[in-house]
Nucleic acid binder design. Structure first.
Length: 283
DNA sequence: TCGGTCAAACCGTTTA
DNA sequence: TAAACGGTTTGACCGA
């Protein structure tokens, strides 16, 4: 799956559907909850980072900056109101095995927000940002295998000082986003195919009109079997099967190389492409 | 496990 | 120049 899939992706999008590349993100609307609460909360602490990376924590009260380091997501992460408490409790409130996996090195940035929010009975999705190093390790691992077995998950979690659940979620998201990206690429390909085919169709329509006009003006061709009409590969003009008729201009009526045996019987390129069976030809 | 979604964190642009 | 704002990225969650 994942990256491997991208090499063997079936095009399943329909023509005419042209979602914008950022549809996914556009669907995500900013809510009032995302208003910069940092400025109004009583507890002003901000993001922290895992070991190896640190963020300055701004304090709205002007207490100055403090550097906090975290070694797990339990560290002082801002938390805001949210209805989704259940999972948070499972994870942050003592999740048996996974909790046991955690090291005792956890350093909690000195702050009071968690207690404060517990008093209010609200919790929130706590989010940390992985460090570049953690992301790089996860990426490398993802390149090797886009899914993890439990042992790999445990090892990665231990190595990165994350909870196995975090590693699992990261891989889930990574797979989803890889797939989304591939869908966008496929969509672009289909759009190009659509444009190509539209142009081809327009050109052929015009050609058909020309031929109809020609048919009216020169009835001679009416007596000639279609299979005897061939095209000169160099000038793309029609040639008559018996060699009697010269080029008539603009014609590409005969495309069957098997049956075309006239003066210009070699057809060098097919005129129609199937983007699904031969996507490289049209796109 | 996936798809959909939420929302924190971040980033670039605009504005007073 | 800082605040405000809109858009994007991504960690986390839920339901199927």
């Amino acid at each position: 799956m994942g990256l491997d899939d991208s090499c063997n992706t079936g095009l399943v999008l329909g023509l005419g559907l042209s979602p914008t590349p950022n549809n996914y993100n556009h669907a995500i609307k900013k809510t009032s909850a995302t208003v910069d609460h940092r400025l109004i909360r009583l507890d002003p602490s901000l993001t922290l980072s895992l070991s190896g990376e640190s963020y300055k924590t701004k304090t709205a009260a002007g207490a100055g900056d403090q550097i906090c380091r975290q070694t797990s997501s339990h560290s002082g992460i801002s938390s805001f109101s949210s209805g989704r408490v259940k999972r948070e409790r499972e994870i942050y409130g003592g999740d048996g095995e996974e909790e046991a996996e955690e090291t005792t090195e956890r350093v909690v940035c000195s702050r009071v927000s968690d207690d404060h929010e517990d008093e209010e009975g609200v919790s929130a999705r706590k989010k940390l940002r992985l460090t570049k190093q953690q992301s790089a390790v996860l990426e490398d691992s993802f390149k090797l295998h886009s899914t993890l077995n439990p042992k790999q998950k445990q090892n990665l979690a231990r190595q990165l000082n994350l909870r196995p659940r975090q590693v699992e979620v990261w891989f889930q998201n990574r797979r989803a986003r890889t797939k989304l990206k591939q869908t966008e690429v496929d969509c672009e390909i289909l759009k190009k195919c659509c444009e190509t085919l539209t142009d081809e169709n327009r050109r052929l329509q015009k050609e058909l009109q020309d031929l109809k006009a020609l048919k009216l003006s020169q009835p001679f061709y009416m007596h000639m079997p279609a299979a005897t009409l061939t095209m000169c590969p160099s000038c793309e003009r029609l040639g008559g099967g018996g060699g009697g008729a010269g080029g008539v201009g603009g014609g590409t009526a005969a495309v069957d190389g098997e049956t075309a045996k006239g003066a210009f019987s070699i057809v060098t390129k097919p005129r129609f492409y199937n983007p699904f069976t031969n996507p490289s030809a049209a796109c």
